[in-house]
Amino acid sequence: MDRIPYIAVLLAYGLVGLAHLHPGIGERLGERVRTVAWTGVVLHGLALLLRMVTTTIGPGFPEAISAGALGIMGAYALAGKGRLSALGLLLAPLATVLLGTALVVPHRQVAALEHSDAVIPWLPVHLGLVFFGIASFALSFAVAVLYLLVRRELKNKRFDRLGRLPSLEVLDSLQFRATLFGFGALTLGIGVGGGIAAVALDEPWAWDPKVGFSLLLWAWYGASLQLRLVGGWRGKWAALFAIVGFAGALFSLLGLNFVSTGWHGYGG
């Protein structure tokens, strides 16, 4: 990856994260911070697009997590208006760390695909969908953390932050929508992945740890949506589901790629 634009983007994301440490970040400063975030997102998107267009060897692990960071910051830039700007406190550092990781890991193509040129154009679609999903789950995670924070303040009758953080109902409904959107994207992403595997490996359900874990994640989020719609598992329970789910998604994104020996792996 050509690093200079990415370093600028990294600085922008880091700056957004730092700005949110300021406890009384007002409306005016908040808007400026969001402008910085948008600038970073646009630059990041262009750099990634350029990389996708000019590549000959297909996207690999760095592009994957870089796209994840882009999705997370994009979610913040879209949703972090007004009181919801508090989301930046979680999302900006997360995106910064992911992008930082992308910059230091070496580029390797998914080993199993080295001789399957036919599927390379489909890889960005697969990646894009999966990372739209992960970005949505990141948003639902950050919103869930805020929900639990606001809930705890109200239950403990602490009023220091009253009126500064988003309302419970706004957070709960945003958390639901983000999960729903992420679930849809993940479903499609897994479908496209199956197609790629069918062509490249001659079997659509080629098993490896990542496939297994993704299906587990899919079932987890599906269950959380079902329980919410049918069983009224909203609020705290939905928030806990989202937090555990995103921890799993992060593990799948970062952890599995280092330890994995499956054909999703870059380690071998």
């Binding site: 606001v150 109200l154 009253l162 009126g163 953080l165 309302s167 419970l168 109902e169």
Partner: peptide, 20 residues
């Protein structure tokens, strides 16, 4: 001007923190 006064408005502050 953002911080309302009065016991009634304290109720509004709590209600908006829950319901928006």
């Amino acid at each position: 001007g953002q911080h309302r006064v009065g016991i009634g408005n304290a109720g509004v502050d709590l209600a908006t923190q829950i319901f928006g």
